[in-house]
Amino acid sequence: MTRSSVHALVVARPVIQGLTVLNLIYAAGLAALLIWSFFIQGWPDRPLGHFASEHPQIGNGLRAIVVIGFVGALIVHAILRRLRAMIDSVRSGDPFIHENALRLTAIAWSVLVLEVLRLFVTAIASAVWEPGRLGGFSFAPWLAVLLLFVLSGVFAHGARMRADLEGTV
């Protein structure tokens, strides 16, 4: 293991813990925003002014985006938990295990779902207040999903090789 990868592992755990806390705060904020939107008088005209009157579906659109954001935060929480478990397995000296292959597969599916959710948000925004504009597509996250599926396959193969090696005398 190179020095930079050792440093990355040392730094990764507290960073993930920090991100987990930030993500939970973000999820709680979104939940509060959604609940608050049902109790605020004159929603959405009062807080958004004439922008809301120009776009009649903006209230429902914003609520839908907040719900999608909340679901996204739950998925990110699951990703961070799995990532932390993987880092712990590396630190304990046994990363090539079947559980890590399953974790990576789950992370790959989670990132895929997050990207689909992002497309939904773009579509809602386009339909509600930016008609005809469908920007924001990026190739990189889809490449990351592909990379994660490949990595999970590599881990599964590594776990099998490790099991074989354990029975070698």
Partner: peptide
């Protein structure tokens, strides 16, 4: 321990 694994037929491979 390794020889016992070999003797008891639990080894998957022999170098």
């Amino acid at each position: 321990a390794n020889l016992s694994i070999l003797k008891t037929g639990k080894a998957k491979a022999v170098r």
